[in-house]
């Protein structure tokens, strides 16, 4: 089983919002000093999904990360968790893309690095939260895609996915090769181990440019983007506090539930 996992390096989403600044002139998020770079959490769960399959059957897990500012101890984490190979696609021509141009670049890279049976991505990246890349890769490769998975199994040459829906989950089975995007309901990703870290330190990532993967740079990065960012801003948050008055806790609870339903929180 050849599994490819796409992992994106992002600024730590747990960092306080005040750490992030907007460069209004460039319409970009200004680099936030002191904010660590991490693997996007949904992508870590994608690694976990791949490793669970590998735990049960012989598999090779290849990881692809894309970007020009990649931090080696961050992007090597999947290797320390148990992945086999790491490919870094680094080229200025791939920067500032959207979900479509990123999906094109990743799909091109996936075709280049070898055989693939299953491609696993996080449901969305923790920086832009767009959630188009996984389905975009499937479109580029002309294969099936199942999104928002909570469980991924490979059975009899097919991938069987439990995918999250509003009131539970549904089971979907598609033939391989396929793309699956993974949600947090999959569960906690495993820790890197010391053995994994020592092994990762000895492994060299394969670094590839746009030319190396055979990408048409008219379709990558900003040049290939199909969407246009009009304005980037931090929304102003206003807190409102409403006291619920009731005769007893049970009534207060019921009234609170009613309010939350009205606000469409529940």
């Amino acid at each position: 089983m050849n599994i490819v996992v796409c992992c994106k390096q992002v600024p730590d989403p747990e960092a306080p919002p005040a750490s992030f600044k907007i460069d209004a002139a460039a319409n970009k998020v200004a680099p936030a000093p002191g904010v660590n770079q991490v693997i996007s959490p949904f992508d870590e769960q994608a690694i976990e999904a791949a490793l669970r399959i590998k735990d049960g059957q012989e598999s090779t897990v290849r990881v692809i990360s894309m970007g020009t500012d990649l931090v080696s101890d961050v992007v090597k984490k999947p290797l320390a968790m148990g992945a086999d190979e790491l490919y870094l696609i680094q080229d200025e021509a791939l920067n500032d893309g959207d979900g479509i141009s990123t999906a094109y670049a990743l799909a091109t890279a996936i075709k280049k690095i070898g055989e693939y049976d299953l491609i696993i991505c996080g449901r969305q990246a923790a920086d832009w939260d767009v959630g188009q890349t996984g389905v975009g890769i499937a479109e580029e490769l002309g294969i099936a895609c199942v999104t928002v998975a909570k469980k991924v199994e490979v059975v009899d040459g097919k991938v069987r996915v439990e995918r999250v829906v509003a009131d539970g989950y549904e089971v979907v089975e598609v033939p391989l090769p396929a793309v699956v995007t993974v949600s947090n309901e999959l569960g906690e990703p495993r820790y890197a181990t010391l053995k994994g870290i020592m092994g990762a330190a000895k492994k060299q990532a394969t670094v590839m440019s746009a030319a190396d993967i055979g990408a048409d740079t008219a379709k990558t990065g900003k040049a290939g983007a199909k969407s246009k960012l009009l304005k980037l801003y931090i929304p102003v948050r206003e807190g409102k506090c409403e006291m619920i008055e009731a005769e007893d806790p049970a009534e207060a609870g019921a009234l609170l539930a009613q309010k939350l339903r009205e606000a469409k929180v529940l």
Binding site: S72, D73, V74, K76, K77, A80, E188, Y191, A192, T193, L194, I197, M198, A200, A201
Partner: peptide, 18 residues
Amino acid sequence: NETQLMVRTMVKDFAEKE
């Protein structure tokens, strides 16, 4: 170095959660 940074990240994560 890379190993030392990875060890820090891993143990920090473990200690926070466990």
